[in-house]
Design a protein around this nucleic acid. Sequence first.
DNA 1: GGGGAAAGCCGTGGCGCACTCACATGATCA
DNA 2: TGATCATGTGAGTGCGCCACGGCTTTCCCC
Lengths: 157, 157
Amino acid sequence: MAHSHDHSVCIDTALAEAERVCAENGSRFTDLRRRILKMIWQGHKAVKAYDLLDQLANEGGSAKPPTVYRALDFLMEEGLVHKIESLNAYIGCPHPGDDHVSQFLICDSCENVREVASDELKESVLSAASEASFKIRRQTLELHGVCSDCQKDKQAA
Amino acid sequence: MAHSHDHSVCIDTALAEAERVCAENGSRFTDLRRRILKMIWQGHKAVKAYDLLDQLANEGGSAKPPTVYRALDFLMEEGLVHKIESLNAYIGCPHPGDDHVSQFLICDSCENVREVASDELKESVLSAASEASFKIRRQTLELHGVCSDCQKDKQAA
DNA sequence: GGGGAAAGCCGTGGCGCACTCACATGATCA
DNA sequence: TGATCATGTGAGTGCGCCACGGCTTTCCCC
């Protein structure tokens, strides 16, 4: 991920894609769901449920946990958002609709999360599973470390 | 994992290995830590922290969360136990001391967790990371599905 | 060896975050 | 208008950590 980019494009694209996906699936992209998805897309970091809750509260209205969790459930159901298990946090999916497995590079320094889609990795996972006659239904693949940008920053400093 | 096996061997081996590892590292394998490791090794399922807490309470003494979490932190530090992020649960490591990355097959039916060590998978992860110039420090690789035994059981039934 | 500081281990109260259930209300759509 | 889906609300459970204090083990110096 580049150090800087026009992030408003990311947001707009994500919202437009969400609109499209929900239309395709015949599901409702309500105002609340839209607001929460937008909050998640404020950056490329994974967002905590209670941070969303606080933001909702700050925007005036009341907000209880189920409000947030129901929206998150919906967004995950539609493939618009992924949960990062090792952080208990949520991140927007940059290419919803594609049939893909989720593999993440999580920078412990800048906290940015990048979704990767390596076919080689995907194949290795499948072959490791089939070797044990294991039938995969869901996978969690989260790599923590330091992203290339942060490595450069460190050298520069 | 075979349907049945002499599990007492698993427990004894794990405890002996723990003894060895702690001796090597010059760290203390106290009674509490030993008891908790033994509880975790009661089966091949991942164990919840609060279940350990309950067991401790049943054994008579008092028990508060930090008691369990400190022991778990220690055991993880020594590489004797892994955390399954997608379950918020903990599992004993069958080969502590080895330099290895953790990859798990988690059966959603019988709940057994099997640790796998595929070199191919390991290489794929490394190559996916290096492609993005990402420096890995920790990885979470958890595959949920149905193990071979449970698939057989289903067919039989 | 013995005394005492230092370090490590563990008990305890309390708290913040993560998530869910049950029920009631309100909006949409057929 | 009835059925369905979305959201508000109160409450409760599970997960994990902080801060404090007491106890034990280790270590070092006399």
